[in-house]
């Protein structure tokens, strides 16, 4: 795998230097490279490699959905037949309003939902329609579902990896 060839110590430094975000300025990478004591080109090349190796999912800007009016987020969980989950998970993940879609293990007898989809909308009605759309897409492969409203965000921080 590509990532094995990357300098692990340097990667940790890059994660640590960029986890609080890049500055919005003409040369954001130069600013971070200076902090790390490496060249701007070197940093860009390394980030490119980390992206190719899957260590970085994306480079970009994460909107504050809540401030932008997308106040209703809902964790929806579905009990999907094992033989159908691969194909159906892909389809659910492609829906515009789904920000995260994961398969997770069942933990019987307490928990039998194996597909998680986080949906976002501006009001309750919009979110209800989205849930109905997922339900329709899953069809008979879905045996049960429930939705978990968030009542309170108690902690939300970016990933912290100590270097």
């Amino acid at each position: 795998m590509t990532e094995l060839k990357l300098d692990q110590a340097l990667i940790k430094k890059v994660i640590s230097a960029t986890q609080n975000g890049l500055p919005i300025c003409e040369r954001p990478y130069q600013r971070i490279a200076e902090q790390l004591g490496i060249g701007e080109d070197e940093l860009i090349e390394l980030m490119q490699k980390m992206l190719s190796a899957g260590l970085i999912r994306r480079v970009g800007l994460v909107p504050n959905h809540y401030a932008l009016g997308y106040r209703f987020n809902l964790m929806t969980v579905w009990d999907v037949a094992d033989q159908s989950i691969l194909a159906l998970g892909e389809k659910v993940g492609q829906l515009d309003f789904v920000s995260h879609c994961y398969q997770r293990p069942r933990q019987e007898p307490d928990w039998h939902y194996n597909l998680f989809a986080m949906v976002h909308g501006r009001d309750e009605q919009e979110v209800e329609q989205q849930v109905a759309q997922i339900k329709q897409l899953l069809g008979d492969a879905c045996r049960a579902m429930t939705q978990l409203n968030s009542l309170k965000i108690l902690k939300k921080t970016g990933l912290r990896i100590r270097s």
Partner: peptide, 9 residues
């Protein structure tokens, strides 16, 4: 309106 700008690991 922006929660973060940078790399998503």
């Amino acid at each position: 309106a922006i929660s973060r700008f940078g790399a998503v690991f």
